[in-house]
Simulated scan of single mutants.
Amino acid sequence: MTDYPRAVLDMIGPPENRYADPAAWARLETQLGTELPADHKTVVDAYAPTQIDGHLLLSHPATPRRTLSEVIRDTCRAWSRTRWERDWTNDPGSDPRLICGLRDLAFGTPQGLIPPASPDRGGIIFLAPRVHGFPGGICVACGDGDRAGHPMPFAEWLYRFLIGEDMAGYKSAAYYPGPVKLESMPMTPDEHIRVTYGPDRGMQTWTPRTRRPQGL
């Protein structure tokens, strides 16, 4: 069985843990009323705040600006105010309530959906308490209005995202051969974006694989 947290760290490169702070996570989890997945916290501690391969932004709860707490609050507030419902009669498999095993959807609550990172290819990803019966997992609000479920932990989702699978909606793959690119986000007026690269993945000739998420 693949150790996905380890596989992600090996692919991205040595962790910097610039803002690793258990107290910041404790404050965020108190606000949410639930613990966040350990693999998500490990990856965020290792690299955030950073943009990975130009398409996935990781925020951290301990940064001096634009914290993960703010990202979660703002995203959940916007989605709570948005009329997300639609008639799923012709496509019940894309009903997020069915995907997540919930009677009603909520955002930023213990039994609701929580955004762990910010992709920029049209979809929004959420941690869900259950996905297709799997305890935990990822529910994607795709750019075309559909919903998809990935019954897997965050680290596995991220690993598959990085190797070019469609993890943020159908045909959302964004794979770049060579090392993973990291753009560290500046947190003070004196800082600038710092670009670094992970180790050689040995995947320069790899062809991205289209993977239809469950629920589409």
Rank of each mutant, 00 (worst) to 15 (best):
residue 2 T to D: 11
residue 2 T to M: 14
residue 7 A to N: 06
residue 8 V to S: 07
residue 8 V to C: 09
residue 9 L to T: 10
residue 9 L to M: 12
residue 12 I to K: 00
residue 13 G to Q: 05
residue 13 G to I: 03
residue 13 G to P: 04
residue 15 P to A: 10
residue 17 N to T: 09
residue 19 Y to M: 08
residue 19 Y to A: 11
residue 20 A to E: 11
residue 21 D to W: 00
residue 23 A to E: 15
residue 23 A to L: 13
residue 24 A to V: 11
residue 25 W to T: 15
residue 27 R to S: 14
residue 28 L to P: 05
residue 33 G to C: 11
residue 35 E to L: 07
residue 36 L to M: 12
residue 37 P to W: 06
residue 38 A to P: 01
residue 40 H to P: 01
residue 45 D to T: 09
residue 45 D to F: 04
residue 47 Y to W: 04
residue 48 A to H: 01
residue 54 G to A: 10
residue 57 L to C: 05
residue 60 H to F: 05
residue 61 P to W: 04
residue 62 A to L: 06
residue 64 P to D: 09
residue 66 R to Q: 10
residue 71 V to E: 09
residue 76 C to S: 12
residue 77 R to C: 00
residue 77 R to G: 06
residue 78 A to I: 08
residue 80 S to Q: 13
residue 83 R to T: 05
residue 83 R to C: 01
residue 85 E to L: 02
residue 86 R to W: 02
residue 88 W to N: 02
residue 88 W to D: 03
residue 90 N to V: 06
residue 94 S to V: 04
residue 96 P to Q: 03
residue 98 L to P: 00
residue 101 G to K: 11
residue 102 L to E: 06
residue 104 D to L: 10
residue 104 D to S: 14
residue 106 A to W: 00
residue 109 T to K: 12
residue 110 P to N: 09
residue 110 P to K: 09
residue 111 Q to F: 02
residue 112 G to K: 08
residue 112 G to H: 07
residue 114 I to W: 01
residue 115 P to E: 06
residue 116 P to D: 07
residue 117 A to M: 13
residue 118 S to R: 14
residue 120 D to R: 10
residue 121 R to V: 11
residue 123 G to Y: 00
residue 123 G to W: 01
residue 123 G to N: 08
residue 126 F to E: 01
residue 130 R to M: 14
residue 131 V to L: 08
residue 135 P to E: 12
residue 138 I to R: 10
residue 138 I to G: 06
residue 144 D to R: 07
residue 145 G to T: 07
residue 146 D to K: 11
residue 147 R to C: 14
residue 148 A to P: 02
residue 150 H to F: 13
residue 151 P to M: 06
residue 152 M to E: 15
residue 156 E to G: 02
residue 162 L to E: 02
residue 165 E to F: 01
residue 166 D to L: 03
residue 166 D to V: 04
residue 168 A to K: 01
residue 168 A to H: 03
residue 170 Y to K: 13
residue 175 Y to H: 11
residue 176 Y to N: 07
residue 176 Y to A: 10
residue 177 P to W: 01
residue 177 P to N: 12
residue 179 P to Y: 00
residue 181 K to M: 06
residue 182 L to F: 02
residue 186 P to I: 12
residue 186 P to N: 11
residue 186 P to V: 13
residue 189 P to A: 13
residue 189 P to D: 15
residue 193 I to P: 03
residue 193 I to Q: 04
residue 194 R to H: 15
residue 201 R to C: 07
residue 202 G to R: 09
residue 204 Q to G: 06
residue 206 W to M: 15
residue 206 W to Q: 15
residue 208 P to Y: 11
residue 209 R to N: 11
residue 210 T to V: 14
residue 211 R to P: 00
residue 216 L to C: 13
